[in-house]
Design a protein around this nucleic acid. Structure first.
Lengths: 328, 328
DNA sequence: CTGAAAGCGCTTACAG
DNA sequence: CTGAAAGCGCTTACAG
């Protein structure tokens, strides 16, 4: 592997000069530059990124923490992030945390070890203070996730409003008993979705019942199990709203297993608008969350922090519309 | 940020000694070690990974090149890879190539720039020689993809055999006109799947017809379009085998749109056994490709190369069974 | 068991 | 416009 010194010798100049043509900085005589360029080509020289990293105290690497990359939701999110990063000369380190707070902290340490320049979190499973302690080592941005006090920059949708739209849609369709299958209770996204659901019921003077609310884990199986519980209630729901599409698919399976028809007997709504919602029969009514765009914007936000910009808005809110299909 | 020198001064020892306790190498007096450990804790010291990288000429980083991470197939593959890497103290850099040969080469250069220690490719869109030129900078492993002459280590399934199983299954069900919707013709996976399809037809003395074979792009839409073409043929197929699940789902949509029933009028088979195959109605018969395991094994193989082991087998073949469901 | 010294391959003020 | 020198923060033979 040729180093910068080999190039310098071959071109008959100093390392400084080679470095200058490498970084396109400072004045270099055009003729000298040509000699250097020629030497680089002859030796098939590629500068060591690691050496440059050490000297510049940067890595051009971003850690992206997600619970599980085999989940298509995170796939789209990361896709958006990676495209922006690549365009800006950065690379993405993929960190599967499996929602484990310990692994989350381990990956955050990469910031401290100067292994990455910045971090994007898609789920917060540690205390806010624990996470904020790492801010002194580099910028941290949230994607899809957010914190109450907006003390960390985040790219999000308005989950309350989205859930309101869903609930109102169902009410206007004549539903009075609307089941809600939520994700984990600790998540702010889930709490906000539930808030939107409850507020809308209240707005229409429909009593909210605890019987009709379940907490699950965002999986098809979880949605299936909760739906079965709802469907054996004395006063069973005529519509079920699940806090993501996977759970809604589980709901559909449970409904169909009972010999009930969708939407005639039970209406079903999901959340996210991932591919599965367009494949399942009948097609699922859902909230179109701009997942890819959240990925794009969050990485842009991080790049902006890295460039030293001060954020005027800590929270970027993207539009999420209700996508009405055959299941309602 | 405290450096190794700060720790050394605080502990009253040399940098060498601190380094030794850091790497757990060489003899260090237990008492000295305690002092160093205490100093590290007091200063909240974390060694700079970048400095270590430069010195050790390694990065503990692996580049994983895939066409598109939002595709669940690659999600599972990468999930398997990441878990193994993390366990071994490595991290994964996610490289979306979008099947673009130029971007593929750009990412391969990370190996040359010493930005990563090794590379896993999941699709080969450049000439074999171009790729092999990078072998002098570090190991390269193929996952799911492979090359004819086995000159690059690869973790794969036997695509010929898998396609034979599918075709035989359909023939034994009484089908004589079996459509085949393949992926891109340039891919060796696709050529082998087609080989298995053709060979089995021949084995059962069923004439293979070019009319019944289409090439597409592994998407739902692609499968849909090709299926519509097959379904308007004078002698239309009674079964359609798609080279992946997404295309099979497109086939199902086309079949159902024509008012035909699955499997009574047309049988459909996919390939991969991704989640969608269990969600679609009727459930899809498909080849259960051990995607996650391919990810796991390919990363293990790469780690093994990095540890300096010489591979006895350049090709690791995993089992892929036919998963018979309701669509046949 | 411990330390001084060299070096990994760059970049960047500083002089000239 | 160009070069000598220092330095980024570690690790690793080499002496002792």
């Amino acid at each position: 592997m040729p180093t910068i010194l080999d190039v310098a010798e071959r071109a008959g100049v100093s390392r400084s000069t080679v470095s200058r043509v490498l970084t396109n900085s400072g004045r270099v005589d055009p003729e000298t530059k040509q000699k250097v360029l020629a030497a680089m080509k002859e030796l098939n020289y590629q500068p060591s990124q690691v050496a440059r990293n050490l000297r510049r105290q940067e890595t051009k690497l971003i850690a992206v923490l997600i619970s599980c990359i085999s989940n298509p939701f995170f796939g789209s999110l990361v896709q958006g992030m990676e495209e922006v990063a690549a365009r800006k000369g950065y690379h993405v380190i993929l960190c599967n945390t499996g929602e484990d707070p310990i692994r989350q902290m381990e990956y955050l340490q990469m910031l401290e070890k100067k292994q990455v320049d910045g971090v994007i979190l898609t789920a917060l499973r540690n205390s806010l203070d624990e996470v904020k302690a790492y801010l002194k080592y580099g910028p941290i941005v949230l994607a899809s996730e957010y914190v109450e006090d907006d003390s960390l920059p985040a790219v999000v949708i308005d989950n309350i409003k989205a859930a309101e739209r869903v609930t109102e849609h169902l009410i206007l369709k004549g539903h009075k008993r609307i089941g809600f299958i939520n994700g984990p209770e600790h998540s702010i996204l889930c709490r906000d979705r539930q808030k939107g659901y409850i507020q809308t019921l209240e707005k229409y003077k429909i009593p909210a019942s605890h019987d009709l609310i379940r907490y699950s884990d965002f999986t098809i199986e979880g949605g299936f199990t909760c739906a079965k519980q709802l469907l054996v209630l004395e006063e069973k729901p005529s519509a079920i709203f699940a806090a993501n599409d996977d759970m809604a698919v589980g709901v559909m399976q449970a409904v169909q297993e009972q010999g009930l028809r969708i939407p005639q007997d039970v209406s079903v709504v999901g959340f996210d608008n991932i591919q599965i919602s367009r494949v399942v029969q009948p097609n699922l009514t859902t909230i179109d969350q701009p997942i890819f765009q959240i990925g794009v914007k969050s990485m842009e936000l991080l790049m902006s922090c890295l460039e030293g910009n001060v954020l005027e808005d800590k929270r970027i809110v993207l539009e999420a519309n209700l996508c009405i299909r055959e299941s309602t």
